[in-house]
């Protein structure tokens, strides 16, 4: 089965924030005013009711200030750290089309997914005590529609399609940019999380951190150990302890009172 993806061509983003509005509208989210801190960015950070943020990364080159616009939302990893960390079965669902979706009926609000996520995306709501993030509009893609942000994008900075097609498209766009003299152009599809279903074309792929993207993200080692070897150790100790005690009794029996009172 083909999996779906979103391609973000940062070279075409004009920072219009239409995708933010579309996301809020489609997902029926009320907007909570943040603090104004001198930036054009809508909010400083993602929020439980704000899943799609255009970061206005301020970047200085040759004494000139420029904006490196980048869209910040769930990356829909091929190997999702949130899913590895989640203790509640069915709270995080990895759909066959590649979307990593949260099912809030099963979410218990522990916040382990926040720790598991290498992109710092899920946000715990203090009111509902559940965790929220972009669903890549799983309710729209399920019926053949493109996600709301992509539907509304006026510059075709955002495209929706199969992951294979979009990886190809990202490569050809990169080649195009390089031919145009943007030598450092490249694709952001980090291998440390098995690749992502949200792909970027960056004008300077050598420095993803300028776009607010982690350079080499991976599921944290602590989470991999916790859900791997530590889990085996736990099973070994519990099963070994119970069986060990039982067979100790079978072999040696109880302690006898060997001494008499004086």
């Amino acid at each position: 089965m083909h999996t779906v993806a979103k391609l973000i061509d940062t070279t075409l983003c004009i920072g219009c924030k239409a995708c933010e509005v579309a996301c809020q509208t489609w997902n029926d989210q009320e907007f909570t005013l943040g603090t104004f801190d001198g930036s054009y960015q809508t909010l400083p950070d993602l929020a439980p009711n704000f899943w799609n943020l255009i970061k206005f990364n301020e970047f200085e080159r040759g004494g000139k200030l420029s904006w490196l616009m980048s869209k910040y939302q769930c990356m829909h990893c091929v190997d999702p750290g949130c899913l590895r960390a989640c203790p509640a079965p069915g709270a995080i669902v990895h759909l066959k089309n590649g979307i990593v979706d949260f099912n809030h009926d099963n979410c218990i609000g522990c916040g382990y997914c926040i720790t598991g996520c290498p992109f710092d995306v899920p946000r715990l709501s203090p009111t509902t005590k559940k965790v929220y993030k972009c669903s890549l509009c799983s309710d729209r893609t399920a019926v053949g529609l493109e996600p709301a942000c992509i539907k509304t994008c006026p510059t075709n900075c955002l495209t929706f399609g199969t992951r294979e097609d979009l990886l190809e498209k990202a490569q050809s766009r990169t080649a195009e940019l390089q031919a145009d003299g943007v030598a450092a152009a490249g694709v952001y599809n980090p291998a440390g999380v098995g690749g992502t279903h949200v792909l970027y074309v960056l004008a300077n792929a050598a420095r993803p951190e300028d776009y607010g993207l982690p350079r080499d993200p991976s599921v944290p080692l602590a989470v991999r150990l916790w859900k791997g070897p530590v889990k085996w150790l736990g099973s070994l100790v519990v099963a070994g302890g119970i069986l060990g005690a039982f067979f100790h009794y079978v072999r040696y029996g109880p302690k006898k009172e060997h001494a008499d009172a004086e």
Partner: peptide, 19 residues
């Protein structure tokens, strides 16, 4: 990240002792 590792390790040690 430290807590998700230390909490279960301490629990495993503790449960082993309690068994």
């Amino acid at each position: 990240l430290a807590a998700v590792l230390i909490h279960p390790l301490a629990a495993i040690g503790s449960i082993g002792g309690i068994i």
